[in-house]
Nucleic acid binder design. Structure first.
Lengths: 97, 97
DNA sequence: TTGACAGGCAAGTAGCCGCTTGCCTATAAT
DNA sequence: ATTATAGGCAAGCGGCTACTTGCCTGTCAA
């Protein structure tokens, strides 16, 4: 699996993105705390980790190890593709040759 | 299920949106033909119908019966919510009291 | 050095969802 | 009236995935 649409398909990952947008460079631990305290979401460390992996896989998140902490950074540019893909059809006068 | 993110999670539904954006007011039959001829996707009538139901459920598609045909119209405004939800965090100088 | 802490890897499980199949309704044409 | 066409409803199946559990690695402080 590796596409931005599926990455956004889960509310957990969307909330994760919310959290990540609050501050850049958060550790997995900090993220998990925020997820709990600010969104009331209790997920296993592993679950969070897997979600972050997916987000990273589609380019929404990049990481950098620093000591024993893994810092996470957001990159929202992949989202632009969504808005670009579809455009409203002309209401009429459209005749397909 | 009823949220725009999950609606977009499947490639089939995305392609469906592509097709719908080509011309407004297509019947389910016409849609299915286009899906096959232009995207090489062969789906059961039922599969297409179910996908269209989902798209309608989240407000991306509206329908109107006309005789024995069901015409489909696109409304992309629900997509705007996606771009609005997330904003990049400030790179630095963010200290959470 | 030893223990605590942040995180990784792998396998297992349960529930969801995309798709099909089978049958039924309603409209339009002959 | 009969037949063909456009679509609807419901149940069933297989695969995927979100989440957990158990164990292991590496870094920092005492």
């Amino acid at each position: 699996m590796a596409d931005i649409y599926e990455a956004l398909a889960t509310e957990a990952r969307r909330k994760l993105l919310d959290v990540l947008c609050q501050r850049d460079g958060q550790s997995q631990f900090e993220i998990r705390v925020r997820l709990l305290t600010e969104h009331g979401i209790t997920l296993t460390r592993q679950a969070v980790s897997q979600h972050l992996d997916v987000l990273e896989e589609v380019g929404l998140v990049s990481t950098s190890k620093q000591g024993r902490c893994k810092l996470h950074f957001v990159d929202l540019t992949p989202l632009e593709e969504i808005g670009r893909r579809w455009q409203s059809p002309k209401q009429k006068g459209d005749n397909q040759t």
